[in-house]
Design a protein around this nucleic acid. Structure first.
Lengths: 157, 157
DNA sequence: GATCTAATTTGCAATTTGTGCTAACAAGAA
DNA sequence: TTCTTGTTAGCACAAATTGCAAATTAGATC
């Protein structure tokens, strides 16, 4: 998503006010590549602004999504994650720890489905599921067997 | 997923009992390509077996997923959908009505991510987001503008 | 077929994640 | 400084799912 300054201007141009709460969240989200949950952001925000409301965090995230400044990612039924990366990208998810990493996927745009000729396709999302290096290490140490095959999709609103 | 008969055998081989509730759910899921929610299945099951518990539906779906007989699909934060299709396939989602269609995607298996060299990749999921023909019609009739760009991933456990 | 035991089903409480509502408050225009 | 309108906080509420325990039953054993 855009810089906090640009977002402030964007907000004003939409007739929205630039409050300290929003400015803080702009900062926290800007170039955040951790795909945080609303709760995680709330925790970070609370550290800097005690008293900020979780409700405000949700509200601001929804506004940013509405204005196209971030996307939602839902993995495995857990809480929604937020992704401020506006570049064309996809995701890898660690099936052990749930960590999400942004990745490039060459050829993704060229994919097309067979069996949906009656759909007008707008977007493609690719999600890889795997095990990250740190989980792989602890897995080896614990002598665990490889994971069951699992299939992971991701989506955004 | 497998036939109700095969699932019964599978259950017994796992030391699990084959109850009437489970048999009914086996039938309802078998070759079901509607990606139903737990509630939807519960409604169908209730029609044939009044008194069956929603809790049992959830439990059985979780068991089937554990045994690899179906996968979970989460779209846009709504309730989890269940997919008994065990073939290698992907999904198209209508961003208007939420309908999910199974599709084949040639080349999906050849995709690989740049920026996740430290991950051991196990699975790839592709989700297309678009508008289905019936929604496209009503959209044209209502003179609606094209949808905002949205990005949709899908995942499974 | 009767008996027995462990798995299962139910129903309800509890949890998790997120939204609706509204009174108090504050941004930014005039 | 004043005023208007959007915003915040906080709590109640909703939706989806799981935890728990008492009552029930599948299926093994005799």
């Amino acid at each position: 998503m855009q810089s906090p300054t640009a977002l402030a201007a964007l907000y004003r141009s939409h007739g929205r006010k630039v409050t300290p709460q929003r400015q803080l969240l702009f900062q926290l989200m800007h170039e955040n590549d951790q795909h945080p949950t609303a709760e995680a952001l709330f925790a970070e925000a609370s550290a800097q602004m005690p008293g900020i409301s979780l409700r405000t965090v949700y509200q601001t995230l929804n506004e940013l999504a509405e204005m196209g400044e971030l996307q939602f990612i839902d993995i495995g039924g857990g809480p929604t994650r937020f992704d401020p990366n506006l570049d064309d990208h996809h995701h890898v998810v660690c099936s052990d720890c749930g960590h999400i990493r942004d990745v490039q996927v060459s050829g993704a745009a060229a994919l097309h489905p067979s069996g949906a000729e009656d759909f007008v396709i707008n977007e493609v999302g690719v999600v890889f599921q795997g095990v990250c290096s740190s989980c792989e290490k602890s897995r080896a140490k614990a002598g665990k067997s490889p994971l069951n095959k699992t299939f992971t999709h991701v989506y955004q609103n």
